[in-house]
Nucleic acid binder design. Structure first.
Length: 479
RNA sequence: GGGGCCGUGGUGUAGCCCGGUAAGCAUCUAAGCUUUGGGAGCUUAAGACCCCGGUUCAAAUCCGGGCGGCCUCACCA
């Protein structure tokens, strides 16, 4: 098998094929099948995200997958940004034209806000927080890849309406906390919260805020974005509320889009190692596998023992009992490690004699034999620390992959050695764009944005323009 | 969209340059025996030359076109 550190792309492609996460042999380009082992985990990811959103007073709904052309054309910037990527439904039956073209939603602002103008009437209706889980469709150009860039992908999109900018910006904060709670703490993926430059924001937004992670080969990978849309969509779709004085006001809108299928790919890319997948404990398709060691003449007592343990652990965890007799234990060990099951329990005649069980843990790739009476205690201890071990390992690589630079030479050098950089830069407003273009041309890397925690302005000069720098920006190549 | 590489059983490949044997190997699948503490062994079975056209006595192999894939650049919340 390919080594991750040698060729991450090939390692990734090989891994997702070997582990049967997706089947990309479906005969439509950019559309893949998320198979069982992957789907079990995707569902858990959805559940966790949804329950966090529900706790924060979002409510679910399901919007239609098609959006009429006229909705799509209501917000000028939005159309301009998305039109090249839209799949249009134009016919029915035997080549009869539809009266109106329908877009397969590339994102659902223009579906939600059409209805928000009917549903939102007064300030008493605000804040108005809804979300849907589902798939969206974008005609990406030919460089599609499973999980990271598909023409169909799975995500959640929230759409919220507020009285004013202040309330809307608080929602942006909440979205980022949600990202941290779920993507970092449960999925174990470290992220940087970045405000995108003006030239790289969501089509139609006032500002775009992203949660970017960094892969071990030094590329940015966007896991979620949240957008402050201001009132432009509200104006286009007539989303108004009456205030206490009976006066009409435009609602301030935000939307948040954590990409579930892409986050899954990120989990594979970040946590996977040369033995295969490693799932965070909470979203592992199965959390524990039990492998009996069946020695001739002693199968009976071993099988009885593992069935007891299986039954006991199944009350709390999702467990598989691999009692297949055609495969040797060694082969099963390799197999389940590749599949990313967090904990493996081994039991053979010797262990029964010693009142012990073998425990292998995939976060540390280590094995020990413990007393059987300590089993549940040990498992719950491992379960508790498993994901944070993965997270810490990921964070170490993440931090090491960011380097500080003060000039173009150092920038080029850092990018060449597969790092992303933090550097002083003149401006992420329109006036900085030409210098960003300059960097792009010279190095192929992009300005991904500024970090959101308050920072004092740099004393250094901008690495591209030589003007005083307003910000430290993060620069790198992306997926 | 540009450039490069490629298309052989379910999967990974050899064969192609230099046309001709029963298209080889590994894995997977099924059946049986035997084994099982870190990828066991044997026997048997099943399974493939992307599509269309051309050249030729003869095409997996050469030529043209199509379709599809991978890498890469551009584009892209």
């Amino acid at each position: 098998m390919q080594k991750k550190e040698e060729n991450m792309n090939e390692w990734f492609n090989e891994l997702i094929r070997e582990t049967e996460l997706v089947d990309d042999r479906y005969n439509v380009k950019g559309f893949v099948i998320y198979r069982e082992w992957c789907a079990m985990s995707l569902k858990k990811m959805y559940n966790i995200f949804e329950s966090v959103l529900n706790k924060k007073n979002h409510m679910p709904l399901f919007m239609p997958v098609v959006i009429p052309e006229q909705n799509f054309y209501k917000e000028a910037e939005h159309v301009k940004g998305f039109t090249p990527e839209v799949f249009w439904v134009t016919e029915h039956g035997d080549k009869e034209k539809l009266e109106e073209k329908l877009a397969l939603r590339p994102t659902s602002e223009t579906a939600f806000y059409q209805m928000y103008s009917l549903w939102i009437r007064s300030y008493n209706d605000l804040p108005y927080k809804r979300y849907q889980s589902g798939s969206v469709y974008r005609y990406e150009t030919k460089a599609t890849r499973p999980f990271l860039r598909g023409r169909e992908f799975l995500w959640i999109e929230t759409h919220c309406a507020f009285r004013d900018e202040k309330a809307a910006l608080e929602q942006i904060q909440e979205d980022m906390e949600t990202t941290k709670e779920v993507i970092t703490n449960v999925f174990g993926i470290p992220v940087l919260f970045l405000q995108r430059p003006q030239w790289d924001k969501f089509a139609g937004a006032v500002n775009t805020y992203a949660a970017d992670t960094i892969t071990q080969n030094g590329k940015f990978l966007q896991t979620a974005t949240t957008h402050y849309l201001g009132t432009s969509f509200a104006k286009a779709f007539d989303v108004k509320y009456k205030d206490e004085n009976g006066k009409d006001n435009l609602a301030h809108l935000t939307c948040y889009g954590p990409g579930i299928s892409r986050e899954f790919g990120t989990i594979v890319a970040i946590h996977g190692d040369n033995k295969g997948l490693r799932f965070p404990f909470e979203i592992a398709p199965k959390q524990i596998v039990i492998v009996p060691v069946l020695i001739k003449g002693k199968e009976k007592e071993v099988l009885k023992k593992v069935k007891d343990i299986y039954k006991k652990l199944s009350k709390t965890y999702e467990v598989i009992l691999d009692d297949n007799t055609q495969k040797t234990p060694g082969e099963k060990f390799y197999f389940w490690e590749m599949k990313g099951v967090p904990i493996r329990i081994e039991i053979g005649p010797r262990d029964i004699e010693n009142k012990k069980v073998g425990i292998f843990r995939r976060d540390l790739n280590s094995k020990e034999f413990i007393l059987e009476k300590d089993l549940t205690k040990t498992i719950s201890k491992i379960a508790k620390e498993f994901t944070s071990n993965l997270k810490n390992q990921a964070e170490k690589a993440f931090t090491e992959n960011i380097v500080e630079v003060k000039d173009m030479k150092a920038l080029e050098k850092a990018l060449e050695s597969n790092k992303v950089v933090r550097a002083p830069f003149c401006s992420i407003d329109k006036d900085g764009e030409k210098y960003a273009d300059m960097i792009k041309e010279k190095t192929g890397a992009e300005i991904k944005g500024i970090i959101l925690t308050k920072e004092t302005a740099p004393k250094e000069l901008c690495i591209a323009s030589g003007k005083p720098a307003k910000h430290y920006v993060y620069i790198g190549r992306g997926y």
